[in-house]
Simulated assay, not measured.
Amino acid sequence: MPQRTRQLTVIGGGFAGLTAAITAAEAGARVRLCESHDTLGGRARTTETDGYRTNEGPHALYNGGPHWAWLKQRDLIGPLAPIPPLQAARLRLHHKGELRRVPPLAMLKLLRRKPEQAPVDVDFHTWATAEVGEEGARAAANFAAVALFHHDPGALSAAFVHERLRRATKVPPEAHYPRGGWSSVIERMVARAWNLGVRVETRARLTDVPANTPTIVATSLPAARALLGDDSLRWDSGRTALIDLAVRSRRGDAFIVSDLDRPGWIERFSAGDRTLAPRGEQVIQGQVPIAPGESKADGVRRAEHLLDLGFPGWRERVLWRREALAAGRTGAVDRPGTTWRDRPAIDRGNGVYLAGDQVAAPGVLSEVSFTSAIEAATLALRAGHRIAA
């Protein structure tokens, strides 16, 4: 009896869902992808408002992870926005209440520590303080927040934070910026999915997992918890105030302001990508992690202080502004004594698999979504073989 074509369903059309759908379709499966919103992309969407293109918070694509090679092999990255050397030199560090050009020496010393030297079961602040002292430990933890979106990086696992610190400070930088925003990558991924025969359904909000077909749930963890009725699908994440601005250009504006006194990051994304704003204007995006007892307004006030320091006169130059709060939408954070292996497992049993940035997969930022999506697709294809047999 000839083997029937494998079938599977992907719920969620963000970066993880598209990765899973493409992987399965390339292997010959018939894939149905269901997205509850009007458009695909999830948190990787780039929105356009009044001529300004912005991601959902600061986004970068790191070239040190496995997804870089995968995307590049399929020509899905597209043109990258170059960062002119003059702009790169305008990185400013807020330390001890002032803007500086170089980090504390103790923080630089900490970067020499190899990843395996940072323990899993000790918090970063305790470990780093023993290594280089209080000042360097605090500055390093707060700088690492660019890849953590958490209000207290020092309280997290030393191994978890140190990996992200080293990735965020590599020279040359790992962070790259797709020209036109992350949606340019998503658009290419959607086109490849269509060309592979993936059946894409938008405005398709499922309330139950389809029967008799392997299913990949590539949604946020809270959404997966509700869909699957599984209360164990929980993991710590960050809570972050986001601010987006369009301002008239001014010579001398900073490229990046990183807060070493408390977690916070402001970046002028149009410095290298002029497609994000009309001529003579700039797009600035920032993220300030906030504690459970703080409000979005608290985070915005801290962001405004960093803007005052790095972008003098910005208030009089504002052409457009938007604020938001990202709660539990910034990826997993690992507490002391835990690693990515302790997060909710990808294989949920009964032909259901999870993909996303808070599940049991290694990597930094979007790499977790990618790695989990590849694993989920691989497991779903195996299950499809068994069903078709």
Rank of each mutant, 00 (worst) to 15 (best):
R322T: 05
A297C: 07
P312M: 08
G349M: 13
F311Y: 10
G310A: 13
A326Y: 04
W320H: 08
L365C: 08
E294M: 13
A327I: 08
W320M: 00
T338S: 11
G299I: 10
G349P: 14
R302T: 04
G293I: 08
P344N: 07
R335Y: 05
A332P: 06
D308L: 09
A324S: 04
G349H: 13
R301C: 06
R315I: 03
R317A: 01
R301T: 13
A303Q: 13
L365S: 08
P336W: 03
D298E: 04
A326W: 02
L306T: 00
V333Y: 08
G337C: 14
D308F: 14
L325K: 00
V333Q: 03
V368A: 00
P312F: 07
Y353R: 09
S369A: 15
W340V: 12
E316N: 14
L319V: 10
T330R: 03
F311S: 00
G331Q: 09
P312D: 05
Y353K: 09
R321T: 00
R343M: 11
G299A: 13
Q358E: 14
R301P: 02
V364F: 09
G356I: 12
S369E: 06
G293F: 11
D347E: 09
R335S: 02
R302C: 04
G349S: 02
G337D: 05
L319K: 07
A360G: 05
P336Y: 01
W320K: 12
A291H: 10
A291K: 15
G351F: 10
E367P: 05
G331K: 07
S295G: 09
G337H: 01
R343T: 07
L325W: 04
L306E: 01
V333W: 07
T338Y: 02
V364E: 06
P362R: 10
A326K: 00
V359K: 05
G299R: 12
T330H: 05
L325G: 10
E367M: 11
T338E: 03
D357W: 02
E294I: 06
A345V: 15
T339N: 08
A291M: 06
R348N: 12
R335P: 03
D357M: 08
T338P: 01
L319D: 03
G299N: 13
T338D: 00
L365I: 13
A345S: 13
D347C: 14
P336K: 14
T338V: 05
I346N: 08
S295Q: 12
R321D: 09
S366W: 05
D334A: 03
A361Y: 04
A324Q: 02
L354A: 10
E323L: 09
G310S: 00
R302E: 00
R317Q: 06
R301M: 14
G293H: 15
I346L: 09
T330Y: 02
E323A: 01
D298L: 03
V359S: 01
R335N: 06
T339Y: 10
A297Q: 11
N350T: 12
G313F: 05
R341P: 10
A324F: 10
A291Y: 13
P312L: 04
R322S: 13
A326L: 10
K296H: 01
A291C: 08
P292L: 15
H305M: 13
H305E: 13
L354V: 07
W340P: 08
S366P: 05
A291V: 02
W314A: 00
S295E: 11
E323Q: 11
R315D: 00
P344A: 12
D342T: 10
R301Y: 05
A355D: 09
V300P: 03
